[in-house]
Nucleic acid binder design. Structure first.
Length: 440
RNA sequence: GGGGGCGUGGUGUAGUUGGUUCAACAUGCGGCCCUGUCAAGGCCGAGAUCGCGGGUUCGAGUCCCGUCGUCCCCGCCA
């Protein structure tokens, strides 16, 4: 017999079906047993009259909650069943994998959930929760929509290596590894390779892939390994072209998620899925500092030209009040707080053509127009104190016809935090990796 | 790297002017009961010596020190 998904059972009233799923709840009474079964499409009740087969009844009684079962039976309408007004009259049951009792914790309890750290130890149990299933379904839709938008706009997908022979940017936050008889590093950004693709004439590329950061950061928004959404595009006039692409791409993807999962997201996360209007507000760093002064936020003295997370949140609040927008581009950052490859303003060499995207007060993206002129780039690298020895292979990208270009990198999980209103990044990722978390 | 919070049965919590509650409640688990239940209900039961080590005290889950674990903030970033 073909398996029927639980969500499709209502279309099979009067028929005998086979359903497969987990035993969410067993109500074992004197004369009857009720089994609430769950698969990825929903819940259904299976009912069994004990006297029909006492041996089978005994077997059912021993089932542990969350056991993996195959059940067959006839689907009947029954208005008194609160779960969809129907039930399956259980005929056979196969225990594919019994669940030991007690469970480490009850994923479907109405009581408080265990602490996040404990749930991470039993992540596969935690992932059984409806909310988590939805999160990864929404993530799938989100990524699919992003790819759709990219490919419809002429982008090529690349997969750059994650093992590197030399540091790609600063070097301070790199994981080092033994590579046969020498040292190698885990990529903390596909930055240089995206740009190589520009030098290769691909014109527009994107990459969705792992990024590694050896930061000993213990916050609710950092991970040592995360999925980066990166893109790079050629023949731009300025960083404005990149931002303009980004906002339309993001609005498109959010709209798709809303269409597909908006109702469920409202149900499970208690959050109205908000598709941002385009264009997003843009605030120059100069203006941002004025805003902070206006709202009375005091920036630590040593931050000159930069914003701390509190400052970013303050600006985001201001933008929310003034423009009713959850997103804001902070643009035109001073060179002192930006990497050497960001292009500088022709009319103000102290400022870069760069931007951060702040969403819900959280920094989710950094982007810029890149410096593509070899001599300028080389001198900026030297100015930044980088050794040409380490960066020459990168500088070489710009020697034989590299077009003007720019792009950005976005943290997938941070985006999900914002999209679904989740406080801790560890809740948004299949398996979290942090300074103290290497398992499971 | 700096700062702060927390650590009680499987899980979530209560218990902190230290002593007659050195252990409670919920949930889960086991047993029994029960008009077809449906956040099911009722009764009974097992389960923590209060992260670990040391100290103060006549006496500490409750105070102090150390240690380990964990969480959050800052730094850093996505």
């Amino acid at each position: 017999m073909e398996r029927t998904l639980i969500g499709d059972v209502k279309a099979k009233i009067g028929e005998t079906v086979k359903v497969q799923g987990w035993l969410q709840k067993l109500r074992d009474q004197k004369s009857m047993q009720f089994l609430i079964l769950r698969d990825r499409t929903g819940l259904v009740q299976a009912a069994f009259w004990k006297k029909g087969d006492l041996e089978l009844a005994e077997k059912i009684s021993t089932l542990g909650t969350e056991s993996a079962l195959t059940v067959t039976g006839k689907v009947v309408e029954n208005a008194s069943v609160k779960l969809g007004g129907l039930e399956i009259q259980l005929e056979t049951i196969t225990v594919e994998n019994n669940a030991e009792a007690p469970l480490p914790f009850e994923p479907f309890s109405s009581e408080a959930l265990p602490a996040l750290d404990f749930r991470q130890d039993w992540r596969y149990m935690d992932l059984r929760r409806t909310q988590n299933l939805l999160l990864f379904q929404a993530q799938t839709t989100l990524e699919m929509a992003m790819r759709e938008y990219w490919t419809q706009n002429g982008f090529i997908e690349i997969h750059s290596p994650k093992i590197m022979g030399s540091p790609s940017e600063s070097g301070a936050e790199l994981f080092e590894l033994t590579y046969f008889d020498r040292k190698a590093y885990l990529a903390q950004s596909p930055q240089f390779y995206k740009q190589m693709a520009m030098a290769a004439g691909f014109e527009r590329v994107f990459e969705v892939g792992p990024v590694f950061r050896a930061d000993p950061s213990f916050t609710s928004r950092h991970m040592t390994e995360f999925t980066g959404l990166d893109m790079e595009m050629s023949w731009i006039d300025s960083h404005e072209d990149v931002m303009s692409f980004l906002e339309n791409w993001l609005a498109y993807a959010f709209q798709r998620v809303k269409d597909e999962h908006g109702e469920q997201i409202q149900e499970q996360f208690g959050k109205e899925m908000a598709v941002p209007s385009v264009p997003f507000p843009r605030v120059t760093m100069d203006e941002a500092l004025n805003i902070l002064a206006e709202v009375g936020y005091e920036l630590p003295a040593e931050k000159k030209g930069d914003l701390d997370p509190g400052g970013e949140r303050a600006v985001a609040r201001y933008v929310k009040e003034k423009y009713d927008h959850d997103f804001v581009f902070l643009i035109d950052w001073p060179i002192s707080v930006r990497p050497f490859y960001h292009m500088r303003h022709p009319d103000n060499p102290e400022l870069t053509r760069s931007f951060d995207l702040i969403a819900g007060g959280l920094e989710i993206t950094t982007g810029a127009q890149r410096e593509h002129r070899y001599d300028v780039l080389r001198s900026q690298a030297l100015e930044a104190g980088l050794s040409l020895e380490m960066t020459q292979y990168y500088l070489d990208f710009f020697r034989y016809g590299c077009p003007p270009h720019g792009g950005f990198g976005m943290g997938l999980s941070r985006l999900l935090m914002v999209m679904l209103g989740i406080e801790n990044i560890r809740e948004t990722v299949f398996l979290f990796r942090g300074p103290n978390r290497l398992n499971p």
